[in-house]
Each structure stands twice: as C-alpha cells, then as structure tokens.
Design a protein around this nucleic acid. Structure first.
Length: 481
RNA sequence: GCCUCAUUAGCUCAGUCGGUUAGAGCGGCGGACUGUUAAUCCGUAGGUCCAAGGUUCAAGUCCUUGAUGAGGCGCCA
C-alpha cells in the first residue's frame, strides 16, 4: 500500500478510505491517541489505536520521537481538536526512540539549546515551520525571476580575485599548512598550489553576474557566499546564501523597482503558501515578546508582513536622511551613541533603525551615498546642488529589525570613470581585466543588487537570530555538523 | 575584535546577608485510568552548582583567570 502524506489527507479529507501514513510520533496520549507528523504540514494526524488489541510490546515502542507507519481508515473525529483521524488497523515501528537518551522533549525548549542539537531541531514545530518557509521563499525567488525572463547563473564559488573589496576571504589551498613551500624571495610559492595561484571562497557573484547580464540581459545568481569576518551578531554568518540580480539597460530607479517588487512578491507568496507555518511562527514570536517591555514589542508577524506587501517603501537620498537624522529628537537630545556629525560618514545601525522603526515606520530605500564610503563599481553621480560631495548611484534597503537586507547600485559603465575609481581605491586593474573588458566592448548602463537570503528568511519567519534560519550555521568558532 | 549579562538535575529555572542535608516544574522510570489534545492522578530516582586558582572557621553564593552561551556594537547581505 502506498503512503499518503498528511498534507494531502487534510486537503482532500477522503472519509471512509483506507490509508497508510508514515511519520514521527509527536505525542501518545492515553495509550490511544498518536499525534503523527510527517513534515508535509505543520499539522499532526491523530491516529487512534485500540490498545486492547495491540501487542503490549509494540504499544510500548510507540513513543515520542519514534518513526512509525499506521494503516487504517479515515473517519470523522469524535474529539474536538481535529476534524478527521485514522482508526488504525495496523501499526509498524520503523525506528525506536529511547526517551532516556533522546535530547528532545515534548515541551518548550530554548532556541539556544536547540542550536546545540541542530541535527535534531528539524523535528520541532518551530524549525519545521522555519525550514518549510525557507524552501518556499527560495522557490518564490526562482519563480519571480523566471516569470520575468531572468536567467539563473551559477557563478564560481572558488575565485582567484581578491580585489572585490567585499571583506575578508577564506583561503582555498592544497598547500600543506604545516610546511608551506616558499620562493627564493621567501614568499608563499603559489606555483605549487592546486590552481597555481592564490584562491579564495567567493564573497560575491556580482562581478561575474555583470558579465552575463551584458549579453543575456537579465540574470540572477542564488548561491553560497563566504565572509571570513569575525562578526558575532544576530544577522551575520560566515557562510550564507545571496541572491544577486543584474540587469542590462537599467538605472537606479529600475533597480529599486525590481528589488521592491521582488521583496513584496516573495513575501506575498509565503503568506499565501505558508499560512499555517506563519501562524505557528507568529504565536511563537508573540509568546517570546511577552517577556519584553511593551514599547519594544513589534506588531504580530503576519500583520507586519502584510504591511510590507501592501505599502510602498520609502525612498530618499543619503543626504536627505542625514538632514532628518540631524534634526531628530534623539540626536538633539544626545540619545544616539554616535551623534550624527554631518555629511560623509556612514550611518550607524542605530541611525538606520531610527529611520525605519521610528521615523517612517516602514521599509526604507536609501540612495546616492557618498562615493567615499561605497564600492568602486558603483556609478558616479553628476554633482547636484545641495549635496556637499561626490555621490554614487547606490541603494540600500533597510528593514525593521533586520537592518540592511539589500545592497545594490547602478554600475559604473564608463571605462575611464571606472578605471579612475579603481586607481583611487587601489584596486588592481590587471587582475580585473576581464571586468574592465565589458566596459571596453559594448558597455551599457546596468544595475543590480545583493539580497541576503537568510535575512529575508529572518524577516518572514520572525526569528531574531540568523543562526536559526539556516540548518547548520557557520560562524566564528563553529562549524559543527 | 570590543562591551554587558549569564552558566545550578535530562530540559526550563529558583536558591535570601557567605552558614547545617541545594529545591520546583516539566521530562525519565514504576503504577492507575482509558475519547485524549503539551491528557490526568499516585509514587520514585536523578546534582563534578562551567573549569582552575584564591579569600574565609565556612563558598552554589565573594575575588582572579579561562571556557562556553546570549544580547549590543563594529564590519556587512
């Protein structure tokens, strides 16, 4: 007999038919009622057994965590908690679960504890919901881009360019670290290394994605990304997944429109397809926030997501943001740890949070940052009245609770301008000859951005620590599992 | 990397001013019950108080160092 998934039973409710379900025992009450979960839905199926008919030795093995199969008839439930249940005719035990050794318990356990047993935390209601939502978001991203005619590109994970200026990198080498070969000059002899040069794990697929965009028109990447920064926060990982669209013949406005459309689309998709999971996550978050002071609580999760899908993001320039911050109450009263000094320095996260959470109370897109604090590839703006210094066509999208979720820009397509910036910032032109070639041959205006996938999952699930939205998080001092 | 806080039973926590035998709930184990919803009821076992050093007649409690975890900051997605 073929196994039926619990999600399908709940959807079609084929009363009276004989079914076979397989899953894990979430509870066994009264020697009669098995709450069975198979991962296809957050809901459990109640399996009713007749303990007087069942072999006592088998009855004993039905307990929290065990993998079992149950064959029986779907009937309307006499109890109140569920509409239908399976009257079991036969129970098969696939895997026992010794409660004296099993680290999970049928009770609330802290996220910190579950993080230590990440190999088992999939089995909890919370993480089941998180990983179903994570999948749905990933799928929605692919669907969004595919429906719009974007091509998914796979950019290298191992890269020789250490010139991208996007942070510390993990070295990739086959050289013996206990006895590194040296040249006569005493330097590491990369000629003997696997690739015959120094290589690292990628910090971004952007530069390669640009190459593809300047032929295929609209492309995106969605792959693992690595940063060897010693970041210990709730929103940084050493290994994370990033989505990087790149669009030819697009300017900064097109870029902002694309990012906003995409974010609203995928969040709406999750609301439509993961309603039950989001409800579980909302309840969890509400419970967690009960311990917080009233003024630090946020609106309920689903309401917050609807708010983002139904309201356009606030767009303003860095220069305008500085004005708002300078004149803000916390700045005047000296409440900021870093007072807003003036034009030209980067915003601190407390400033971003003020704009998003207090001033506008909605997602904010900041644009046209000072050139000095942004990357070399961003397009240089024409001087503008009222703007104290040179700026670039950059944009950052800031979300409540998360901070920066998207960073992007129109790219500098003018060869001389790009080379000029590279020289200023000491980016070796020789190494990036291939990147510069696109500006030499048929260059065109284009734009793109990077979206931190885990930060998106954080926002949608309401999980406050990024280590809880990826199965096996990598961060300083930890590569377990 | 910096700052703050934490670490007590399998889990979540309490432990007063430094004072005798370190407690609770849940979970486990044994039993009862049998239409339950984190089932309920009765009974029971379970402790390197994070580690090392120090102060003291006496340390879970105070001090020093370290480890681990959490939150904040920086870097950013």
């Amino acid at each position: 007999m073929r196994r039926t998934k619990i999600a399908d039973i709940i959807r079609t409710e084929p009363i009276g038919t004989e079914l076979l379900v397989k899953g894990w025992v979430k509870a066994f009450r009264n020697n009669q009622f098995i709450a069975l979960n198979d991962g296809s839905t957050p809901h459990n199926m109640q399996v009713v057994v007749d303990f007087e008919q069942l072999d006592p030795a088998q009855l004993e093995r039905i307990r929290f965590g065990a993998a079992i199969g149950a064959r029986g008839t779907l009937v309307e439930s006499q109890g109140k908690g569920q509409k239908v249940e399976i009257k079991a005719a036969e129970i098969v035990i696939y895997g026992d679960c010794n409660p004296e050794e099993y680290p999970l318990q049928p009770k609330k356990q802290t996220l910190e504890y579950l993080r230590e047993i990440a190999h088992l935390r999939f089995r909890t209601n919370t993480f089941g919901a998180v990983f179903r939502v994570r999948h749905t978001l990933a799928y929605a991203i692919h669907k969004f881009f595919n429906d719009r005619g974007f091509y998914y590109q796979h950019t290298p994970i191992i890269t020789a360019s250490d010139a991208e200026g996007a942070g510390e990198m993990f070295r990739v080498t086959t050289l013996p670290i206990e006895n590194v070969p040296r040249t006569d000059a005493g330097e590491v002899d990369f000629d003997q290394d696997f690739f015959r040069r120094s290589t690292n794990l990628t910090v971004s697929g952007q530069l390669e994605a640009e190459l593809a965009a300047l032929a295929l028109g609209e492309v995106y990447t969605f792959g693992p990304t690595f940063r060897a920064e010693n970041s210990n926060t709730t929103r940084h990982l050493a290994e994370f997944w990033m989505i990087e669209p790149e669009v030819a013949f697009a300017d900064l406005d097109d870029n902002m429109n694309l990012a906003e459309d995409m974010l609203q689309y995928v969040i709406r998709y999750a609301l439509e397809h993961c309603a039950d999971d989001l409800k579980i996550l909302e309840d969890r978050l509400t419970e967690e926030e009960k311990s917080k002071p009233q003024d630090q609580r946020t609106m309920p999760l689903i309401e917050k997501l609807r708010f983002v899908t139904d309201n356009s993001f606030e767009r303003l320039t860095y220069t305008e943001a500085i004005d708002i911050l300078k004149n803000s109450n916390p700045n005047k009263k000296g409440k900021f740890q870093y007072p807003v000094e003036g034009w030209g320095t980067d915003l601190q996260s407390e400033h971003e949070r003020y704009l998003v959470e207090k001033h506008f109370k909605k997602p904010v897109i900041l644009t046209n940052y000072p050139a000095a604090i942004k990357a070399f590839y961003m397009r240089q703006d024409d001087p503008k009245e009222g703007v104290p210094g040179p700026t670039v066509s950059a944009m950052d999208i800031l979300f409540p609770g998360i901070g920066e979720i998207v960073g992007g820009s129109q790219r500098e397509e003018r060869y001389e301008r790009l080379v000029g910036r590279m020289q200023e910032m000491h980016i070796p032109e020789k190494e990036l000859y291939w990147y510069l070639d696109t500006r030499k041959f048929g260059s065109c205006p284009h734009a793109g951005f990077g979206l931190g996938f885990e930060r998106l999952v954080q926002f949608v699930t309401g999980m406050t620590n990024i280590r809880d939205v990826i199965a096996f998080p990598r961060f300083p001092g930890n590569a377990e599992f």
